[in-house]
Simulated scan of single mutants.
Amino acid sequence: MMEPFTRVVGQDWRERGVDAPLCRRLEAALRTAIADGRLAAGAPLPSERAIAAGLSISRITVRQALAPLIAEGRVTTRPGGGSTVAGAGPAHRDENRPSGSAGPRRTMLRSHADELAEKGEPVETRLVDRLTGPPSAPEAMTLGLGPGERVLRLYRLHCVGDRPRILELTTLPAAAIDADAAIVSPSAALAAAGLPATRGVERFRAVALGAVEAGLLELPEGTPAMRIERVSYTAGGRAVEISRAFCRGDGYEVVAELSGE
């Protein structure tokens, strides 16, 4: 069953980009197969277990390879329904996504503080907390971390004047970067470590603030806010940063240029 799929990703997929983690090599092979039509839009993918068994790799490696493709909408999943190829171009609409939502927003990769500063407002970033510890299972999967590896978590408030606008939790691979430099600028710290982020995938979701987030943003618990989840990648496809930001609804807006093409 798996031999045809092995031919699709290429018998030599392990040898391509040997400096990259195995999951990123498989991700690259899947991207190529989708782009050149060997994995056609609408084609079902084998299960994670079947792919892992056929390629003699772990299921976590398969999951890490598929995660960016799922986040970008190139592969869609349904609970109990497996995974399906969406296509190589702009992401197809997921049937589980509300009908009024749009596809990926394409814009420049920049920090939330930069977006505030572009409005001409003086921005102050305050460190709330800094923690180093083991990653959660989703963080380990996204960042491609193995057993025993740790992450750096930065909790920061981006303020305009004395008013908090954005609460941001940034998760980075601890072994790769200078923690003190990351407090000032995670992107600069990644670049200094030879891991510059060149692209990212963002998801926007309206939420009601919990007690902790609301307190830090100086709002009543339950206040509506925008939650922005971002995963940033290097040019080689390695995920190097996870950002979860809670933005006050009265101080943040999204502007996107749309095209009919």
Score class of each variant (00 low, 15 high):
Gly81Thr: 00
Ala113Arg: 09
Arg199Thr: 13
Ser243Met: 14
Pro98Gly: 07
Arg156Ile: 01
Pro4Tyr: 00
Ala117Arg: 15
Ala43Cys: 11
His112Arg: 05
Ala67Val: 06
Ala67Ile: 02
Ser136Glu: 15
Leu217Arg: 07
Ile60Leu: 07
Arg59Asn: 08
Pro138Thr: 09
Gly42Ala: 04
Glu221Tyr: 10
Leu219Gly: 02
Ala208Thr: 07
Arg59Lys: 13
Gly210Ile: 01
Glu257Asn: 04
Thr171Glu: 01
Arg25Gln: 05
Arg38Phe: 10
Ala71Lys: 07
Leu145Met: 14
Arg150Cys: 14
Ala191Trp: 03
Leu109Met: 03
His112Ser: 06
Ala140His: 05
Arg150Glu: 15
Leu169Thr: 11
Glu253Ala: 07
Ala245Glu: 02
Arg163Tyr: 09
Leu154Cys: 11
Val9His: 01
Val8Glu: 01
Thr32Ala: 12
Ala29Asp: 02
Ala225Ser: 02
Arg126Trp: 08
Glu213Ala: 11
Leu167Pro: 01
Thr61Leu: 06
Ser187Trp: 11
Met108Thr: 14
His158Ala: 09
Leu143Cys: 07
Thr171Pro: 06
Thr142Phe: 02
Arg7Leu: 04
Phe5Ala: 00
Ala191His: 06
Ser47Glu: 10
Arg63Ile: 07
Thr77Ala: 12
Thr6Lys: 15
Asp36Ile: 08
Ala102Gly: 00
Glu241Ala: 09
Ala35Val: 08
Pro44Asp: 08
Glu118Ser: 11
Ile242Tyr: 01
His158Pro: 06
Glu48Arg: 09
Ala53Val: 03
Asp178Glu: 13
Pro122Thr: 02
Thr223Gln: 11
His92Met: 14
Leu219Asn: 03
Val75His: 05
Val62Ile: 04
Pro104Asn: 09
Leu258Met: 09
Leu219Lys: 14
Ala67Tyr: 06
Leu109Trp: 01
Gly251Trp: 08
Thr6Ser: 15
Leu258Val: 10
Val207Asn: 07
Asp178Pro: 09
Gly100Lys: 05
Val255Tyr: 00
Thr125Leu: 11
Pro224Val: 13
Ile70Ala: 12
Phe204Thr: 06
Ala211Gly: 07
Pro122Asn: 00
Ala193Ser: 10
Leu30Gln: 06
Glu27Asp: 10
Glu139Trp: 02
Ala191Asp: 05
Pro44Cys: 01
Gly251Arg: 14
Asp162Asn: 12
Leu127Gln: 09
Ser56His: 12
Leu109Ser: 06
Gly17Pro: 02
Ala256Ser: 04
Ile228Asn: 03
Leu69Met: 12
Gly222Thr: 10
Leu154Trp: 06
Thr107Leu: 10
Ala40Gln: 13
Leu39Gly: 03
Gly249Arg: 10
Val212Lys: 12
Arg97Gly: 00
Ala245Asp: 04
Glu257Lys: 08
